[in-house]
Design a protein around this nucleic acid. Structure first.
Length: 362
DNA sequence: AAAGCGGGGTC
DNA sequence: GACCCAGCTTT
């Protein structure tokens, strides 16, 4: 093989080139100052499907609240969810707690230190296992996240739909080849993600100042804006929520969401979901004992309307504040419980509910 | 293989 | 309004 073409092969120069770029352009982020697997893990879970700017303050608060994995293991799950409030994908918080307890109690506090063992933990998939294994333990295993799909699809001109299983395999295989040529696998993994996040961005990538410009298939063929190829996702589901907010003696009736639905283990009010929007209390279908409760109370103020946008649902909510007479002891449905405003303030709640409380009880 | 799961930033 | 973010779990 000709030595010159071999040394210029993009597959062998790619990793070192990005590592060099990274040392110059990397952002100063708190989790980059540690190799403690607990902190690395915490940061990676927070950053799943979450931008650095959004996740960073949460990371700082979690580190302050739970300096060690044992602190997190013994924490109250409700308190942990409360800290997670507003970040979304709440199963991450529940899995965080479960894995903290597993490592503390079953693994004697010893954090799994290989890609394969990390994969066994709840909430740790291929990406996160690779991130922890390389950042904390130096293992030569590549991260493949949204940034990596974008960068590799462009540089190597891969047109497979990244949502398919075969494409994921293609990228994983290529990534595994590329990391072999890295000087340091941890630095390279950081580098390719940082490069995707701040240079090879989804729109308006900075091709003119790109370190691999002359090797980039997408740039050389003018296709950087068409890559990566990603099939459309399902349309957003419309949902109509009517919340009955019962108040008595200054306390509100709340309910923990335990169904297989959004906001599991968070708290909201008595919910009536309908297929059509309902803006009047009398139009809302009610069953006992709720209907009796509504009849003994009186509707306060005008209903408050709100729209909460999720990536997969659009929720149109109407809140009806219903004041119950002091003496009525009437039966509250078993899933509803009275909470003082102080107690409510420390319950984990969806943003929709937090916003309503701020507006109604400001 | 596909669906379900938050909330926010950016253009 | 559309896209997408240091993805994972369940069906």
């Amino acid at each position: 093989m000709d030595w010159q073409s071999d040394s210029n092969d993009i597959e062998t120069t790619f990793a070192p080139t990005l590592e060099q770029w990274y040392t110059i352009h990397k952002r100063d982020l708190p989790w980059r100052h540690t190799v403690n697997p607990y902190y690395i893990w915490l940061s990676e879970i927070i950053l799943q499907q979450t931008r650095v700017a959004q996740g960073r303050p949460y990371y700082e608060r979690f580190v302050a609240a739970y300096p060690t994995i044992s602190d997190m293991a013994t924490a109250d799950e409700r308190e942990l969810l409360r800290l997670w409030q507003g970040l979304g994908y709440y199963s991450r918080a529940r899995n965080l707690h479960q894995t903290a307890r597993h490592i503390t109690e079953k693994l004697a506090g010893k954090f799994p230190d290989t890609y394969q063992d990390l994969l066994k933990m709840k909430g740790i998939g291929a990406y996160t296992a690779a991130a922890i294994a390389s950042f904390a333990f130096g293992e030569r295993v590549p991260v493949v996240d949204g940034n990596v799909y974008r960068v590799l699809s462009r540089v190597f001109g891969i047109t497979e739909d990244i949502t398919t299983t075969t494409a994921k395999k293609t990228f994983a295989t290529l990534a595994m080849r590329l990391i072999q040529a890295s000087v340091d696998p941890a630095t390279y993994n950081q580098a390719i993600m940082e490069f995707g996040a701040i240079h090879c961005t989804p729109v308006a990538p900075d091709c003119l100042l790109c370190p691999v410009q002359q090797q980039c298939v997408a740039y050389l063929t003018g296709r950087q804006h068409q890559l990566p190829v990603k099939s459309k996702k399902a349309p957003v589901r419309e949902r109509f929520f009517s919340y009955l907010v019962f108040r008595q003696n200054g306390r509100l009736a709340l309910h923990e969401r335990v169904d297989r639905d959004i906001w599991q283990n968070l708290y909201d009010f008595h919910l009536v979901e309908t297929d059509e929007p309902k803006t009047a209390l009398r139009d809302i279908p009610l069953a006992e004992p709720i209907s009796s409760l509504v009849n003994t109370g009186r509707l306060l103020d005008a209903p408050v309307e709100a729209v909460q946008l999720l990536s997969h649902q659009r929720i149109r909510a109407t809140f009806f504040l219903i004041e119950l007479p002091e003496k009525v002891v009437g039966s509250l449905p078993i899933d509803l419980q009275w909470y003082s405003m102080d107690e409510i303030s420390i319950l984990p709640k969806p943003v929709l509910i937090t916003n309503y409380l701020a507006k109604q009880f400001a």
